[in-house]
């Protein structure tokens, strides 16, 4: 009963968030200099007369006040109609759907890799505080945390694709091959470099955070008491550390969906990887308003889902939160 109530509360929160985000982005796009008619017609603009443009605008309802337009767009959204992308000439949801699968593999691989590696590096650094190993890990993390994704992407591309020739220069599948002939290995092969770029950078955040958290745990009263009872070394960290530092690490990792998405936009651009990020850049640059607004809404839902999952996992691992919710809700 309580968990139903909890889900309902979260669902309501997500709904209000989505409404707020759609209002805000609609206002921003309305105020922007993008002319939807022009971006629809594109290069044929010279051959279209002023009258014809007026007619298209009228047909789309662009002459109506913004509130009316917003309500029309909104009611279509609720019915699942996100409009038609002007650059891909296909329904927005279909474009996003295709792109999302490609991006999901990229982001998923980077997310798992950076999470696991970062957690392990953080524990190693924390357990060996002040040693050469700790300093090395810290240095690596600080450099990575201040490195722009696109720059690292270019660097990796130059070394592994251009210089060594081990990996393809870009794209998600080999060029000039029929859709049906593309193998799973082809897809993985094209995924490696962008995923590497994203995870190498993603490691920094989680490793530094885990290291600090482990240092806090190691100087806590309950670790002093564990040592007073004769526990020591890795067994002590394993018994008292892992559960206590896993919580913040997990929530950080799920809450980083937004950064992951932002990083993917840049990495996909560098590697010409046909994912959500690249679609976002294209939609922005070429004034594809329906696609841009659709992407904003889908990515909002995506980031919200990340935070929501973090909450749920938190309450499964931490008995204090589970009990707390039972008592206070």
């Amino acid at each position: 009963m309580n968990s139903l109530k909890y889900l309902a509360k979260k669902g309501l929160r997500m709904l209000t968030l989505l409404i707020a985000v759609s209002i805000l982005s609609f206002v921003l796009v309305s105020l922007s200099p993008i002319d939807p008619v022009q971006s629809y017609i594109g290069a044929d603009m010279i051959r279209v007369s002023e009258e014809q443009r007026q007619q298209i605008a009228e047909n789309w309802g662009l002459d109506q006040p913004p509130v009316t337009r917003f309500l029309k767009w909104g009611s279509n959204l609720i019915q699942g109609d996100f409009g038609t992308s002007s650059i891909y000439r296909a329904p927005v949801l279909q474009v996003i759907g295709e792109r999302f699968i490609a991006s999901a593999f990229l982001m998923g691989a980077a997310w798992v890799l950076s999470g696991v590696l970062g957690f392990i590096l953080g524990i190693l650094a924390g357990m060996n505080q002040g040693t050469l190993l700790d300093r090395g890990i810290k240095l690596y993390c600080l450099i990575m945390a201040s490195t722009p994704t696109f720059w690292l992407g270019l660097l990796i591309l130059m070394v592994f694709s251009v210089g060594l020739g081990w990996f393809p220069i870009g794209l998600g599948v080999p060029a000039g091959v029929l859709q049906g002939d593309v193998t799973l290995w082809d897809r993985i092969y094209h995924l490696i470099l962008p995923a590497l770029t994203l995870s190498v950078i993603g490691v920094a955040n989680i490793a530094l955070h885990t290291r600090q958290k482990l240092l806090d745990v190691l100087s806590s009263d309950y670790v002093i008491f564990a040592r007073a009872r004769g526990e020591e070394g890795f067994a002590l960290v394993w018994r008292h550390g892992i559960r206590n530092i896993a919580l913040p690490a997990i929530s950080l990792q799920f809450a980083s969906f937004s950064e992951l998405f932002g990083g993917a936009v840049l990495a996909e651009q560098v590697f010409s990887y046909p994912g959500l990020g690249q679609a976002t850049v294209q939609a922005g640059l070429r004034g594809d308003v329906p696609l841009l607004l659709g992407l904003v809404i889908i990515s909002t839902a995506f980031v919200f889902a990340g935070n929501f999952i973090a909450d749920i996992i938190y309450s499964i691992i931490d008995p204090r939160i589970k009990e707390g919710r039972r008592n206070h809700d």
Partner: peptide, 12 residues
């Protein structure tokens, strides 16, 4: 050792 408070027990 008998320590001071609940803080000396592993919370999880």
């Amino acid at each position: 050792l008998i320590p001071q408070s609940v803080n000396y027990l592993d919370p999880l």
